Computed example of a mutant assay.
Amino acid sequence: MTHTTPPRRPNVPAVPAVPAVPAVPAEILAYYGRGKEDARLREGGAPAGRLEFWRTQDVLRRLLPTAPARVLDVGGGSGVHAEWLAADGLEVDLVDPVPLHVEQASRLAGVTALVGDARDLPAEEAAYDVVLMLGPLYHLPERTDRVRALAEARRVVKTGGVVVAATINRYAQLHDLLREERYFTPLNRERTDAVLEDGRHPYHEEGFFTVAHFAQPDEVPGEFTEAGLTVERQYGVEGVAWLMGGVESWLDDPARREAVLAATRHIESEPALLGASGHLLTAGRRVD
């Protein structure tokens, strides 16, 4: 009997497995499952929420291409922004991990919505002209998860396409609680001060928010760069207007509202004031 020696297998290095995406924390799903996010930003909601909405809309309308263009609204919630984007003639797909949000967004004209995770987008490469991430980054406490989400945004946006991500600023809760005089309660003060150290906002029973990361403005561009995106500009959303007394009556008056938006636009990218806003928008592009 003749024995043959099987050919030696080439020494091919093993391809590292991509880690599975961890589940979205139950605390986050429960927080948004209460259905209060939709009303927070709409007409009749709290002044800070309405200012956030109008200023986000103001910035995006200057950054986004005109119709026709495809937009992926990642973590788009109930479709508060997707609604006006679709009304502007853009083709909008929305992805969100909260089933209630997807159900609400699915009712909007011109919006397609499905359940999904920012770190593993259900979309083909280079399928969109724009990717918006107006919620996911501040609910990913680990930097690796934030970079992974941004890398997914880069994957699904076309070369030359824009990616815009929102973050909550490190001192947002401190400013908010001072403005509302809740910081003087010892427990509120203790919890708020703890977040200032590393930006990690844990879940607390009867807390103000859910699991989150409050970022310093200068850390976000590094995460964009690590994900392969080229940063173009950052925008403070609310400026200092949200901290001022009288803002509610200003926003209820259309003429004064426009004055507030114009004043905030003057300082929106002033480096010394970026952290004064409650939220920050960072815009970048896929350039290769």
Rank of each mutant, 00 (worst) to 15 (best):
Q234S: 06
L178I: 15
T185W: 07
V164W: 04
E206Q: 14
L229Q: 04
G239H: 00
H204V: 09
E226N: 01
V247Y: 01
R155G: 12
R200Y: 07
F208V: 14
A172H: 02
M244F: 09
V163E: 05
A194L: 10
A215D: 13
R154A: 12
A165S: 07
R233N: 02
L187Q: 11
V195I: 15
H201Y: 15
H175M: 11
R179E: 07
E219P: 03
P221Q: 01
G245Q: 14
E197Q: 08
D198I: 02
D198R: 03
P186K: 04
A212H: 06
P186C: 11
E238P: 01
G228M: 02
E238M: 01
P202K: 09
M244C: 15
L243W: 05
M244E: 14
R154S: 11
E232G: 03
F209C: 12
V231L: 03
I168P: 03
R179L: 08
Y171H: 12
E223Q: 03
E180G: 04
V164I: 09
E238L: 00
V164Q: 11
L196H: 07
D252T: 14
V156R: 14
F224S: 01
V211H: 03
T210D: 11
G239M: 00
R182E: 15
G245S: 14
E197I: 13
V163Q: 04
A153C: 13
G222K: 02
P186F: 07
D252M: 03
V211N: 04
T192G: 06
D253Q: 10
P186T: 04
L196P: 02
F214E: 01
H175Q: 11
L196W: 06
R191K: 13
H213Q: 12
A194H: 11
G199S: 02
E180K: 11
G246M: 02
S249T: 14
A215E: 04
G228H: 00
V164P: 07
Y203T: 07
T210V: 08
F209E: 13
F209G: 13
R170P: 05
T230Q: 08
D253A: 08
E181D: 09
W250H: 11
L229G: 04
H175K: 09
L187D: 13
E238I: 01
T230W: 10
T230S: 13
E180I: 15
Y235I: 00
P186D: 08
T167F: 05
R189Y: 10
G160Y: 09
E180A: 14
F184D: 06
L243M: 14
V231M: 01
P202H: 15
E205L: 13
E232S: 02
L178T: 12
V156I: 12
E206F: 09
W242M: 04
E190N: 12
S249A: 12
P186W: 05
E181G: 09
P254A: 04
L251D: 04
R155Y: 10
H201N: 15
G239W: 00
G246H: 01
E206L: 10
L251S: 08
A172F: 06
E219Y: 03
V247T: 05
R233Q: 12
K158I: 10
Y203N: 05
R200K: 09
G161L: 08
F184L: 14
V156S: 12
V162R: 15
G207K: 04
R179S: 06
R182D: 11
D176N: 14
